[in-house]
Computed example of a mutant assay.
Amino acid sequence: MRALKRILEGLLTVALLLVLAAGVHYRLFERGWFHLNQWHRGEPAEDASLWLPDYQVTIQGKVVRGIDDDLSALTFDPDRNSLIAVTNGNPHLLELSLEGDLLRAIRLVGFSDPEAVEYISAGVYVISDERRQRLLRVEVDERTTVIDAAHASQLSLGIDRNGNKGFEGLAYDKVGERLFVAKERNPVRIYEIAGFPYVAEAPAVHINQHQARLFVRDLSSLQFDERSGHLLALSDESRLVVELDGSGQPLSSLALDAGKHGLEQDVPQAEGIAMGPDGTLYVVSEPNLFYVFSKQAR
């Protein structure tokens, strides 16, 4: 009887340790605490934030025709009233309509692994090359058919280098002239870069770590909201969009799991997020899926 009791106690101890390990690995305790605080804050937080719980999906899992795989990154272009994305398997810069239709594809030459793209100004974008940890300023007009990395202004960084776990997301603050750069994982980080893409040489370029209180397993994309000054961080592995205030404090979240926000199925591999001028959120997922989330009136 004692032997059986000791065995049961040992099994219970192992089970508890496994639960604790899983909680730490998947950031479940921090995520749970955040959701509790989000619920507790309620209406005061809604008035001071985008309040992602009010968003519902209006287009879900639409296949982007003309793209087979590797649809990654997303940014809104206000001059063209369209979305810009990239593919990395067969590198291209893409233009999509706000309904998720492919409008244009421009071949990228000299890019090893383009993972993020961000609108800067009319015809000017920054593309991140993940493996080489470099940012490239490119210019595009109606006649552009090829973008060659050799002709682009570049900023190379060697921060926490870890193979294919480099720069996955970009966001730009036009007023503050700050470029936010997300490192995917190992470790998860958000950096602020001042100076680039208009200056590419030190000491004019300054890099700081953004003090974000993140509880996600990875980062795949960023979006800066000019109106609130808040940053949206997208995590593929956590299936979550988190809203961060100017000090990096998480305020609200949007889950990308089936049954949440009107989703019929999980978003399989969310890789890009962008926001339109009316607050509409656009999300792309590998291999070639397109989603739209709109804020619902209360």
Rank of each mutant, 00 (worst) to 15 (best):
residue 256 L to Y: 01
residue 288 N to Y: 06
residue 183 K to F: 01
residue 119 Y to Q: 07
residue 248 G to T: 07
residue 232 L to V: 03
residue 123 G to D: 08
residue 244 L to H: 05
residue 157 L to K: 01
residue 128 S to D: 03
residue 151 H to D: 15
residue 276 G to Y: 01
residue 191 Y to F: 14
residue 240 L to Y: 01
residue 253 S to N: 04
residue 16 L to V: 14
residue 255 A to K: 11
residue 26 Y to W: 14
residue 73 A to M: 03
residue 151 H to W: 10
residue 221 S to I: 05
residue 102 L to E: 03
residue 143 R to I: 12
residue 248 G to E: 02
residue 153 S to P: 08
residue 234 L to P: 05
residue 161 R to Q: 15
residue 189 R to E: 09
residue 102 L to I: 08
residue 9 E to V: 15
residue 178 R to E: 12
residue 290 F to T: 05
residue 264 E to V: 13
residue 83 L to P: 03
residue 161 R to F: 11
residue 74 L to N: 04
residue 32 G to S: 15
residue 166 G to K: 01
residue 282 Y to H: 00
residue 145 T to Q: 12
residue 81 N to F: 09
residue 51 W to A: 10
residue 201 E to Q: 14
residue 287 P to V: 02
residue 74 L to D: 01
residue 112 S to V: 14
residue 22 A to I: 12
residue 104 R to Q: 12
residue 80 R to G: 12
residue 176 G to I: 06
residue 15 A to G: 09
residue 137 R to E: 10
residue 95 E to L: 04
residue 149 A to W: 00
residue 119 Y to P: 09
residue 103 L to G: 08
residue 251 L to T: 01
residue 191 Y to P: 08
residue 150 A to D: 14
residue 159 I to E: 09
residue 255 A to W: 03
residue 227 R to V: 13
residue 100 G to V: 03
residue 171 A to V: 07
residue 27 R to C: 05
residue 138 V to G: 07
residue 248 G to L: 08
residue 231 L to H: 01
residue 255 A to R: 10
residue 122 A to V: 11
residue 79 D to K: 05
residue 155 L to S: 04
residue 159 I to P: 09
residue 47 D to T: 14
residue 219 L to Q: 02
residue 179 L to N: 07
residue 59 I to E: 07
residue 49 S to T: 15
residue 290 F to P: 10
residue 255 A to D: 12
residue 235 S to I: 02
residue 63 V to W: 02
residue 190 I to L: 07
residue 65 R to W: 02
residue 7 I to H: 12
residue 222 L to V: 04
residue 245 D to A: 03
residue 167 F to S: 06
residue 12 L to F: 15
residue 215 F to R: 04
residue 198 Y to W: 13
residue 196 F to L: 07
residue 83 L to V: 05
residue 165 K to G: 11
residue 44 P to W: 00
residue 67 I to D: 07
residue 153 S to N: 11
residue 255 A to P: 13
residue 58 T to M: 08
residue 15 A to Q: 07
residue 21 A to F: 15
residue 130 E to G: 06
residue 180 F to W: 02
residue 215 F to S: 07
residue 155 L to M: 05
residue 218 D to V: 06
residue 270 A to L: 02
residue 270 A to W: 02
residue 68 D to L: 13
residue 179 L to G: 05
residue 190 I to Y: 04
residue 294 S to N: 11
residue 69 D to P: 09
residue 126 V to L: 04
residue 285 S to K: 00
residue 35 H to Y: 15
residue 298 R to L: 12
residue 284 V to A: 01
residue 218 D to P: 06
residue 131 R to G: 14
residue 110 G to W: 02
residue 208 N to D: 15
residue 160 D to E: 15
residue 168 E to R: 03
residue 228 S to L: 14
residue 283 V to M: 05
residue 150 A to F: 09
residue 99 E to C: 08
residue 201 E to M: 13
residue 226 E to P: 13
residue 120 I to F: 00
residue 59 I to V: 15
residue 23 G to Q: 02
residue 197 P to K: 08
residue 89 G to S: 10
